[in-house]
Amino acid sequence: MKRIKGIDRGTLEFILEVSKSSYPNEFAGLLKAEDGIITEVLVLPGTESGETSALLKLFMMPNISTVGSVHSHPRGIIKPSTADLQMFGKTGNYHIIAGYPYDLQSWKCFNAEGDERDLQIIDG
């Protein structure tokens, strides 16, 4: 398992902006890291987004390594659902949920079990 030091500020701002532009639908993607810093969001082909869920087509994932996932909660509740926890276990150990209103205070990171974890914002 990769040791993650934090998330690049630009990557987090991208996540928040895409989440905001997807509103009222959910946004979902996968996270990639370079040198221990989350630097990229992968949007998989065929991802389905609705007001209550986003469905990642994991079978469309290229043969690459991811460290986790990201998705938005348009209702602003920044807590993993049962469906979130099922997906978390398949995609890594760092899972970001961005909640409405999608600002720097409205996101959290969780581990694969759904426990909140600290994730430092790193200025790139």
Score class of each variant (00 low, 15 high):
S21P: 09
S22G: 12
S22K: 14
S22V: 06
S22M: 15
Y23E: 09
Y23A: 10
E26V: 00
F27V: 05
F27T: 02
A28D: 02
A28M: 07
G29F: 04
G29K: 03
L30C: 03
L30G: 02
L31G: 02
L31S: 01
K32I: 08
K32D: 08
A33V: 00
E34F: 10
D35A: 13
D35E: 15
G36L: 07
I38K: 02
T39Y: 08
L42K: 09
V43K: 07
V43M: 04
V43G: 05
P45E: 15
P45I: 09
P45K: 14
S49W: 08
S49T: 11
E51Q: 13
E51G: 12
E51F: 12
S53Q: 12
L56A: 07
K57L: 15
K57V: 12
F59A: 11
F59K: 11
M60T: 11
M61P: 00
M61C: 07
P62E: 12
N63R: 14
S65L: 14
S65H: 12
S65P: 10
T66M: 01
V67L: 05
V67Q: 02
G68T: 00
G68K: 00
G68L: 05
G68Q: 02
S69F: 00
V70W: 00
H71A: 05
H71N: 03
S72I: 01
S72M: 04
P74D: 09
I77P: 09
I77W: 13
I77L: 14
I78S: 05
I78L: 09
I78Q: 06
K79P: 02
K79C: 11
K79Y: 13
P80C: 07
S81C: 07
T82F: 14
A83H: 13
D84E: 08
D84G: 05
L85Q: 08
L85W: 05
L85K: 14
Q86W: 10
Q86R: 13
Q86L: 14
Q86I: 10
M87S: 14
G89R: 15
G89W: 07
G89L: 11
K90G: 06
T91P: 10
G92M: 04
N93G: 07
N93F: 02
N93R: 07
Y94Q: 07
Y94K: 05
Y94I: 04
I96F: 02
I97C: 06
A98N: 03
Y100R: 15
P101H: 03
Y102C: 01
Y102P: 01
Y102L: 06
L104E: 15
Q105H: 14
Q105W: 11
W107N: 00
K108A: 10
K108G: 00
C109D: 00
C109R: 01
F110S: 03
N111P: 01
N111T: 05
A112W: 10
A112S: 13
